[in-house]
């Protein structure tokens, strides 16, 4: 059933965020440290485990998860619509230079660090 798929994702998000908030408390920073990442990891492990042991979830269960992933881009479009774009443009030279240079610089580092992964696969 489709609701099972939605439920599996909900379950992963709760467990992952629990771990995230727990780590946050341990480290003394307020908030969710990597909770979404843990939730994703859990979903990857669960789905890969089911795939190998029991041949994967039923098609209708998968449809529930796929519905959510299909909503992802529309949600991102809505998210873009609630950004404080005015503040970004009026933050002055400091905000613009710092944000802009850091972003472009970081992007240029992508191929450099990406090589680490390739070297490892060749070994």
């Amino acid at each position: 059933m489709e609701i099972y798929g939605l439920g599996i994702v909900a379950f992963c998000m709760y467990i992952g965020s629990f771990v995230g908030y727990f780590i946050g408390k341990l480290l003394g920073v307020s908030g969710n440290v990597g909770g979404v990442g843990f939730a994703m990891l859990l979903l990857v492990l669960l789905s890969n485990y089911y795939e190998t042991k029991k041949g994967g979830w039923s098609e209708r269960t998968q449809n529930g998860i796929l519905l959510l992933s299909a909503l992802y881009i529309p949600i991102v479009v809505a998210m873009a619509g609630i950004q404080n774009v005015v503040a970004a443009f009026s933050g002055g030279a400091v905000a613009f230079l710092a944000g802009g240079i850091a972003t472009i610089g970081s992007m240029l580092l992508v191929p450099l660090i990406g090589k680490l992964g390739k070297d490892k696969t060749i070994e």
Binding site: S69, L71, I75, G81, G117, K120
Partner: peptide, 30 residues
């Protein structure tokens, strides 16, 4: 509500479905 962090994170988690474990291992160190 639609673009807020709750639904955004819920949808992001769902995109992990279909990710292959070996791809993750490959990218672990980098």
């Amino acid at each position: 509500l639609l673009g807020g962090s709750m639904l955004r994170d819920y949808a992001i988690v769902s995109t992990a479905f279909g990710v292959k474990l070996e791809n993750l291992k490959k990218a672990g160190l980098p």
